[in-house]
Design a protein around this nucleic acid. Structure first.
Lengths: 330, 330
DNA sequence: TTGTAAGCGTTATCAT
DNA sequence: ATGATAACGCTTACAA
């Protein structure tokens, strides 16, 4: 591995001044065509590639790199979000540094520090469940920051969220519409922001339909598909539920498994779409959230901030869509 | 947004020389404890963060950043691969720049150039379907390079592939084992390396079982789930097939849809695992490939190269695993 | 142990 | 239009 040729090498090879090469490389037009020819030739002869890292340390210059910290790329939801960010970034000439925090605050903080040290131009962040250091304690200057999927502890921060309350409310409302009563809420811990919101939507829909809220129908410890399946099964055995609102896709899949083992199905609507939803019969109705749009929206806000514009609105709540496919029916 | 404090600012604030701050920041031990104290204080007071981009342009220094170019992060397979790379990179203090080529050669080449200009230390690459410029035409020096999932046109390149031939062979063999005859191959274009290999495995298994190869049972235009479903349906209507080898997960899902619409199922084994596989009954047997392991293996090879070691072996073919879940039976 | 000075590859100022 | 020369923030000989 030899050393990469520098702009200086090109200048020497083309017998012009360093600055002229710089001008050429930066697309300046006022250059003698003869010299352009010589420079062009020297560049291809030497195989010169500009060093953007070196250029970025000049005042007023940037790395043209965005940072994205999510919880786990392997999760399809965050993968889609990543794609959204990437598409916008790339279309605007930005590279994207990605990293997964695994919901760990300390790890998350380390990644933030690392990206700031690398001088990314902007940071898009999914706050981890187990939060770490408060944002207020991070010394300025901070790069443009946008939080996605969950709110952050930073006051007045730019945020892109999904309408968890509205989505859960409409899903539950559909289940209420059938002339039946008891609708189970199956999900993860209510300490999680999204779960809390979906639970709120669930309660609002019940209230809308004059159904009394029953704490015993709410299960918030379905962390895995298997746990969700067991939960739904036991709720079905008690015979006290007539329908299921699955508050995340693990709960949806768990419900399907419970239906399959008990040989009996109940009306079901899930939150967040999943691949298998179309394959079961009836197909599973879901509240779908557009993760990719979330990502591209966040990236757009970062770009606005980088352009010196304050994005309007400062924060966004993206609507969800209720996809009725049959499973909501009795 | 004020200007970030520099090492010089810290030196002035702590009333020491620039070099001493540099020593401290780089973890050198031989520093007067009194000065350490002063420097530490100045750093927190000013909120100093080192500028890694600036450090990286010094000779012998690197950006400690890896680049990863895949076809699409939103594809669960590549998302898993990304996670594998990311985990290893992050554990070794490397940041990861990711980008999707969308299988487009020109786009891919642009991303490669961009990452090389940004001076990433190493590049992990999934060659796009519609290839662009040959690697031999890229002027040196090239960073350490590892190709994943598909072979590249670069002679002697380090590569990490899945055992597509072996996986398809074992899957087809299982279907041959049942005392039946005609096994359909449903997949995408055979021009794709992975498809070609899986088709080869399919043929080898047929030969192993003394079953004659019938070109009419091979469909290589199932680009989408819907197309695959239609293909399988029409094959079933002709009544000429007794089993299906689905050569990718779109074909697997399409087969399930065809079974559902025709109300009749055939023995089925798919290539590449998918979420819905466990939900259908019987559960779908698949050849599973460990994309995450592929990513971590590739990252490990890059790290070896960066450490000056030649990785052994220079290229890897990762085994696949045949997961029998019931759908392979009559 | 600490400081001075040079230099990494680039861009910007300001003469020419 | 072109070219010396000085930055940018950092590390490292080399001197003190």
């Amino acid at each position: 591995v030899s050393k990469a040729p520098t702009m200086n090498d090109v200048a020497r090879e083309a017998a012009v001044a360093l600055k002229t090469v710089s001008r050429y490389v930066n697309g300046k037009t006022n250059i003698d065509p003869v010299l352009v020819e010589r420079i062009q030739a020297a560049i291809t002869r030497l195989g010169y590639r500009r060093n953007l890292a070196a250029a970025s340390i000049r005042p007023g210059w940037t790395s043209r790199t965005l940072g994205l910290i999510i919880s786990d790329v392997a999760n399809p939801y965050y993968a889609a979000l990543t794609r959204g960010v990437e598409t916008v970034a790339s279309a605007n000439g930005y590279l994207l540094s990605t990293a997964s925090s695994d919901e760990d605050g300390a790890r998350h903080d380390r990644l933030v520090d690392r990206m700031m040290e690398q001088r990314v131009d902007g940071l898009i962040i999914v706050p981890p469940r187990r939060v770490g250091r408060p944002w207020a304690s991070v010394p300025p200057p901070l790069p443009p920051l946008v939080f996605v999927d969950r709110p952050s502890d930073l006051a007045g921060a730019h945020t892109v969220l999904a309408d968890n309350v509205g989505g859960a409310r409409s899903a539950t409302a559909v289940l209420c519409a059938a002339p039946a009563g008891r609708i189970a809420f199956v999900g993860d811990s209510l300490e999680l922001h999204t779960m809390h919101e979906r639970h709120t939507g669930y309660r609002l829909a019940l209230a809308d339909a004059d159904v009394t809220y029953d704490r015993d129908l709410v299960s918030s410890d379905a962390h895995t598909v298997e746990e969700a399946a067991r939960t739904v099964e036991s709720l079905m055995h008690t015979g006290r539920i007539d329908a299921v609102f699955a508050a995340n896709n693990r709960a949806s899949v768990g419900s399907l498994m419970a239906f399959s083992t008990t040989g009996r199905r109940l009306p079901l609507v899930g939150f967040d779409d999943f691949e298998a939803a179309l394959l079961s019969s009836p197909a599973v109705s879901v509240v779908s959230q557009d993760a990719q749009l979330m990502g591209s929206t966040a990236a757009g806000m970062i770009l606005a901030l980088l352009a010196g514009k304050e994005p309007h609105p400062a924060s966004v709540v993206l609507p969800t869509e209720l996809l009725l496919r049959g499973s909501e029916l009795r």
